[in-house]
Simulated scan of single mutants.
Amino acid sequence: MATPDQTPSPIMAALEKFEATEGNLVKLDRLWAEIQGLMPSGISFGPNAEYEDRCRSYGAILSALPKIDGWKPTAEPPDLDGLAQSRFDAMELDEPSAHISVERWAEEPGHELHEYRFRLNTKRRALIRDALSGLIDEVDADLRTLRHKTGIADDAKKLAQGDWAELRSHINQIEVLLGSSVDKPARWNELRRHMHFADSGDLDDIETTDWVQAKQALRKGLFGVNDPLPVDVDDLSDLVASHPRGTITTELRWSNLSDELFERLIFSLIGDEPGYENPEWLMQTRAPDQGRDLSVMRVITDSLSGTLRLRVVIQCKHWLSKSVNLQEVAGAKEQMALWTDPRVDVLIMATSGRFTADALRWIERHNAKGESPRIEMWAESHLERLLAARPALIAQFGLR
């Protein structure tokens, strides 16, 4: 965050423009409510200085709104004599459609303000998406650091107020990014309250409840949950009526994905899957191909023995021209020793390619000996089977 005497970062400069636009939109909403209150409900000719002054202010602020995708509101409050004449003409016609048309015209400024706010919020979410994703990862890392400092359960150490500084800073930055375009997630107030008291018990609540729920809501609010997917057909019945035949393609177009989108695909796969909870990116790791590890808890429930939680780390290899070899697998397995609190129980290697024969044999021997972590292979063919049962993800990531 820039201090007052510093030049703001590009994203802060952009946010300032959005905030100014939001400020003007709030003024327009207020003025429109006042104008509606002054607008007569029937036929009334003659001047109204208070109404006209608000309409002039409305027009001046409206002109300051920037366009969004080439569009901005243009409708202004109606002239009172013009409104009275239109209502009189509709009364003369004595047709319901004429009355409806006049009232819709009179209310058009309000409808356009609603449309503009929807577009503004959509664009603001797109603006903050990458920054917010990074801050979510930072909060995950902050919580791991705090847990390492305080220890576990009965051995927990008292945390100093300064230990919480990074977490507080990142949470504050998230609030700035959210603005009014994204609602504060559930338990956000509880999270802030626990940060204020800043005890080891508060850290437990943040880790197990507050942040888990907040993070899930933040990601769902940002990454296309309500964004439409293109469907190049007017009526699906036409497709059925044509009785299409032909070969069913099982291969996916992995080349359509960048390395980052491949990670996002795997994250989306585990993020909404029953039996998996608290997915996150591990900020401290960077593979030679710049990939980040993903972490998630696998929840196994047994009606007799209870619930078992296993920590799963996923390495993503978006490799189209080479296979994952023994050296890569062995190196990844050794890297898992660096991850503790909790330890890694399962290592998944997810790739858009394949595994070499020697890597397959090594993994099978490793798992047969029962050594930790267990290694699972999610090769191209395995991912294609998983995604075949999740066509929404195929469409979302453009894999056909």
Rank of each mutant, 00 (worst) to 15 (best):
M1A: 12
A2D: 07
T3F: 08
P4Q: 09
D5M: 12
I11Y: 02
A13K: 13
A14N: 09
A14Y: 01
L15T: 02
K17M: 12
F18I: 07
L25C: 07
L31H: 03
W32G: 00
A33V: 08
A33M: 09
G37V: 04
L38W: 03
P40C: 09
G42L: 12
P47F: 05
E52D: 13
R56P: 00
S57F: 00
G70C: 05
P77L: 08
D79A: 12
L83P: 04
R87A: 05
A90Q: 03
M91E: 15
P96Y: 08
I100W: 08
V102C: 09
A106G: 10
H111E: 08
E115H: 10
F118G: 11
T122R: 10
R124V: 07
R125I: 07
L127F: 04
R129Y: 01
A131C: 08
L135M: 13
D137H: 12
D140M: 06
R144W: 01
L146S: 03
R147V: 00
D154I: 03
A156W: 02
A156G: 00
A160H: 10
G162Y: 00
W164Q: 01
S169D: 12
H170G: 03
L178M: 15
S180R: 15
S181E: 06
S181K: 06
D183S: 15
D183F: 10
A186H: 11
R187D: 12
E190K: 14
H196L: 14
G201I: 03
D205M: 14
D210G: 10
D210Y: 06
Q213R: 15
K215S: 14
V225I: 11
L229F: 14
S237L: 09
A241V: 13
H243D: 13
R253F: 03
N256C: 11
E263T: 14
F267L: 15
S268V: 01
L269A: 02
L269C: 01
I270D: 03
D272Q: 09
D272L: 06
Y276K: 01
E277L: 04
Q284A: 13
T285G: 00
D289L: 03
Q290C: 00
R292I: 08
I300T: 14
I300H: 07
I300W: 01
S305D: 11
G306S: 05
G306I: 03
L308N: 06
R309L: 05
R309T: 05
L310S: 07
H318M: 01
S323R: 11
N325Y: 01
A332D: 15
L338F: 14
D345I: 02
L347K: 02
I348Y: 00
T351Y: 12
G353A: 08
G353N: 05
R354W: 13
R354I: 10
D358P: 00
A359K: 02
I363H: 03
E364K: 12
R374V: 09
E384A: 04
E384T: 08
L393G: 10
L393H: 04
